[in-house]
Amino acid sequence: MNALELKNITKSFGFNTILKNVSLEVNLGEFLVLVGPSGCGKSTLLRIISGLESSSTGEVFIGGKNITLVEPQNRDIAMVFQSYALYPHMSVYENMEFSLKIRKLPPVEIRNRIHEIADLLQMTPLLQRKPKDLSGGQRQRVSLGRALARRAPVILFDEPLSNLDAHLRQQMRIEIKKIHQIFKSTIIYVTHDQTEAMTMGDRIAVLNKGQIEQIDSPFNIYHSPKNIFVANFIGTPEMNLLNGEMRNNYFVHKDFDFNISKDISSHDVVLGIRPENITLSENQGIAGTVQFFENLGPNGLLHVHTGNEVIKLFIQGQNIPKINDKVFLNVDQSKLKLFDKKSGSLIQ
């Protein structure tokens, strides 16, 4: 049985259609990450699941029950808001206690739960403070804690770590995963952050302009993107996307061409290749000049200009070509993706 299911959800504000026919199934205890560009409807989708917003058409099921018309307070869904939404007149402890009290849990249980979560999120010293006396990161942790203390079967996260510094973000990422493993709630987690999406999700759903482009494991999303949008959106630095044409097993680009041992009829295509699947070679391959080198620490990103295109590739080691050096690039044939230019979807 699915923990959560969306069937053909459409949402319009006036004439503006924000979500188009979104269908989604989330398994019990699954950690689903929802990514997509700003304004694509991620928050709106969470609000529809939580019942704060009603969908124009479509249905929401939780545990097999149709809850489309159920009020939010009766859905037993917890949510971490993009803007924290802490109760300003209550201390951290009272913020966390509030929902448990409403649900009439025994006082001992309430206390235990709050202290357990506070421990996990390292905010025991903050329990008696008011939200206004906390830093942005601390507030964010409190709003996380408030949702987690509920132990709701379904928890929605709306960019919960967006205001934390890199170090704390990494720490919290691990904490959230740990807590997920302990309580096994079903989680839908919205983020902008690629690393978060890749490391945390059991599956990733990529949303674009109100439509789900692809739902799959992080591995498949990364290595087998279904279309140009997903290929381009997932991965930092981005995948190289080269516009060209297929002609008799040759990929023909304005600046270069090379043989592809794939049987594809002639038409306009977009060739996608990730920076890590291109290597420098001595004297054969795509010719270009080095334009720029970005040092990323463990490796570096080389920008190579081929005339009309800039191709980026990872390089390692000491032998870094200098700017304006002539280089040759080799593309790992087994890793390249070909997309139909018109429809944007994967050919092979």
């Binding site: 939010p72 307070q73 949510m79 808001f81 939404a85 109760y87 007149h89 509030f98 929902s99 409403i102």
Partner: peptide, 29 residues
């Protein structure tokens, strides 16, 4: 007062009226 406060209260289990008198009113002193 941000709307999210009532929304958080609702998800915490309050009805609209409870959200008003348990969250919004006390913070409006």
């Amino acid at each position: 007062v941000p709307k999210e406060l009532e929304e958080a209260a609702k998800l915490d289990g309050c009805s609209s009226f409870q959200a008003f008198y348990k969250i919004i009113l006390p913070m409006s002193t």
